[in-house]
Design a protein around this nucleic acid. Structure first.
Length: 710
DNA sequence: GCGATCAGTT
DNA sequence: CACAACTGATCGC
């Protein structure tokens, strides 16, 4: 999988996410997130020994990653040698060779990666240029444009190389439903089941890894039911996550694990061993979050596909899709790109073919990849701006490098904080206080990508669905998606949302027996992505440890008015159980309606998306931002074109954000001109940042108790 | 006995 | 189904 060996060409004296072999000589270590495949060698005796000898060697990571790492006794020996760095806080680090005394300064900035709690990307600036190591990431289209620290003077920084997560850099993953859509699909599936009776439970068959937290927290928040997990002590200092988890098996939502879980499930037994409640047998369905499974479907499917009488697959991804990767890279527009992963079935060459055209280094080299038609346009772009997009307008290809080429500047910059002792000594708690959750870490974007999920092909592999059940879910078809491979048009989506009601049928279990009322609609919207719980997700993917408790949620709520309402109205997080079938029905009804409405409203507003955004704003989109959004779109043609592959991808082609109509040429021109002259376009951006900052930093009372075991 | 590697599962 | 991890077998130190 990962083919990144730990070192970057520009800064070979530091190692990232690899701690074996050559990396044993690094002057400093960096860990982007706490997944085992990025921790190779991290607890090996050889490294441990080296630590004992080289007292100046430290491991740098986000506060959350540090917390998670040190929860494991096996990594406890790192305790005194880890320095956590706050997100989005440029920090200077001295790289000293203990033998020769040679020293090199480098400034590192952690940017939220949206992959799992604590996950970050590392932006390094030093004498050998600015480079970005993405670690594993899932960023929606346009998110790079919203990261202030990737910019300088209103433009993207001049980045020499990007070490990129290319896990899904394969046209078969051209489009992966947004986090919001996937979450929504799961929420509705769960809702349709657990509201039937207190004896209806769901089992989330998750891999043992960080990254599902936002799913758990959203489910808990939505239904007032904590999620049963095997362990939660690692979250003891992350109340926003901890509060939604429990080790008490008496709950309707389980994400517990057991080696024989599958087997248990056959016997209607949960991994935790529970089979009944009050002597009454439980009715259980399993939901397996998957990405690759969906990528393999020949046809598009809904975000939820029934694969058996009581089994479902839910689309869920920790990594950016092919189009998201291209959007990200084309926005950054580095000179070079190095894939961190070569997906199975493909080769380095192919991945490079896809990515190179999105880099400056491709200008001269290989024009051939781009489809001719687009090529022409693209060409301009490539030549001129590094920033990319806009290129058409710029006639003069300024060597981009000029501007940004100021690696060291940053060093001088006041905003840079010396690492040193400070951070390391402080109690983590304080440091982590941050909290920049959602808003900040992932500015939500309302326009999110929507996805098109089409109908499921019944290829349910696992057990096929029993005929009996079938009826209900059978075809997941509905989806508005009709997408037959054609390029979806925004209108279609809008319409869909509007029609939700009618068209969709779902394969929800509910249809069968339960009062099918709800399910149908809900589903439908799942396919069109509404931005509902964005922030929350963000929060769980957050890199920060903070309290945020309710506040955090609130903030997200402003993001999405509707959803927040439903949330508040319906069930508050604190309200635990929602059982009572009867009651549920009543309470739900209204909610459901809201659900249905929400999307509509939202969408309608979205028509004028930009506005929408700014208004809603807590998230604060600004003009700038929106304009920024356009840019990528504009570029998009390029990207697409560039992708050699092709045809297949065309079906997936993603239209520009719904909100906005394509920018007119004049509009763009105006925008580009400003960019060219260095004028600031971003006036309001500030608001946003302020907002996020405010939101972000909350003092953390950290101890909050929460007895992990409850 | 531990760790690394590989195959097989999920 | 290479997402992330666990299990078990084998080999080497």
């Amino acid at each position: 999988m990962s083919c990144f060996e730990g070192q970057m060409a520009e800064y070979p004296t530091i190692s990232i996410d690899r701690f074996d072999r050559e990396n044993l000589r690094a002057r400093a270590y960096f860990l982007s997130h706490c997944h085992k495949d990025h921790m190779k060698g991290l607890r090996a005796p050889t490294l441990k020994r080296r630590l004992e000898c080289s007292l100046k060697v430290y491991l740098y990571c986000s506060p959350v990653t540090k917390e998670l790492l040190l929860t494991s006794p096996r990594y406890r020996f790192w305790e005194k040698r880890i320095i956590s760095i706050e997100i989005e806080t440029p920090t200077q680090i001295s790289l000293v060779d203990e033998a020769s005394g040679e020293k090199e300064e480098i400034v590192v900035t952690l940017l939220p990666a949206g992959h799992c709690p604590g996950s970050v990307m590392f932006l390094f600036q030093g004498n050998n240029g600015t480079v970005l190591y993405t670690g594993d990431f899932r960023l929606a289209k346009g998110e790079a444009a919203r990261m202030e620290l990737l910019h300088s003077g209103g433009r993207v920084k001049d980045i020499q190389s990007v070490y990129l997560d290319t896990t899904f850099c394969d046209p078969k993953y051209y489009q992966i439903p947004s986090r919001e859509e996937c979450l929504h699909g799961i929420l509705e599936l769960v809702r349709s089941w657990i509201t039937r009776s207190p004896y209806h439970v769901v089992w989330l068959s998750c891999k043992a890894a960080y990254g599902y937290e936002y799913l758990f927290t959203n489910l808990s928040e939505e239904f007032g039911v904590q999620v049963h997990v095997n362990k939660l002590d690692m979250f003891r200092n992350m109340p926003d996550i901890l509060h939604h988890l429990t080790t008490d098996r008496d709950t309707q939502i389980h994400a517990c694990r057991h080696p024989k879980a599958e087997e248990y499930f056959q016997w209607n037994k949960l991994p935790c061993g529970v089979t009944s409640k009050n002597r009454i047998p439980l009715h259980t369905i399993s939901i397996k979050p998957s990405t690759m499974w969906f990528g393999e479907r020949a046809r598009k499917t809904n975000v939820i596909v029934r694969t058996g009488a009581s089994s479902y697959r839910a689309c869920f991804s920790f990594h950016s899709s092919y189009s998201e990767i291209k959007d990200f890279l084309s926005y950054i527009y580095p000179v070079n790109v190095y894939p961190n992963v070569i997906p199975l079935g493909t080769t380095m060459g192919k991945v490079q073919e896809i990515l190179k055209p999105l880099c400056r280094s491709s200008q001269s080299t290989e024009p051939k990849y781009k489809p001719l038609g687009k090529l022409k346009r693209a060409r301009t772009i490539h030549l001129d701006s590094e920033e990319d997009d806009d290129s058409d307008l710029f006639d003069d290809p300024l060597p981009v490098p000029l501007r940004h080429k100021i690696p060291n500047q940053q060093t001088l910059h006041p905003e840079v904080f010396p690492t040193t002792a400070i951070s390391q000594n402080q109690p983590e708690k304080q440091r982590e206080s941050t909290g920049c959750f959602r808003a900040e870490s992932m500015p939500t974007f309302l326009w999110a990508d929507f996805i098109d999920c089409e109908e499921s092909n019944s290829e349910s592999e696992e057990s096929e669905i029993p005929a009996s059940a079938q009826g209900d879910m059978g075809p997941v078809p509905q989806l508005q998606k009709k997408a037959d491979g054609e390029v979806p048009q925004w209108e279609v989506f809008f319409k869909r949302s509007a029609d939700l009601t009618d068209d969709c049928l779902e394969n929800l279990p509910s249809s069968t027996e339960a009062g099918g009322s709800q399910s149908p609609k809900l589903f439908s919207d799942s396919s069109d992505g509404d931005s509902t719980h964005i922030s929350s997700q963000t929060s769980s993917q957050s890199t920060h440890i903070s309290e945020q408790g309710s506040q955090g949620w609130d903030s997200q709520s402003d993001t999405v008015l509707l959803s927040s309402q439903e949330r508040n109205g319906g069930m508050t997080s604190s309200s635990r159980r929602v059982y009572r079938p009867g009651i549920n029905d009543n309470t739900l009804a209204p909610q459901i309606e809201q659900n249905v409405l929400c999307p509509k409203d939202t969408y309608s507003d979205l028509k004028s998306r930009d506005q929408d955004v700014s208004i809603a704003s807590s998230v604060g989109e600004t003009t700038t931002l929106s304009s920024g959004k356009h840019m990528p779109q504009e570029k998009r043609p390029l990207n697409l074109s560039s992708s050699a592959d092709s045809q297949s991808s065309s079906d997936f082609e993603i239209p520009a954000t719904p909100e906005a109509e394509l920018p007119t040429r004049e509009h763009l021109q105006h925008f580009y001109e400003k960019l060219a002259t260095g004028e600031r376009i971003v006036v309001e951006k500030r608001k946003r940042s302020l907002h996020s900052r405010a939101t972000t930093k909350k003092p953390i009372p950290r101890d909050n108790s929460q007895n992990p075991n409850r």
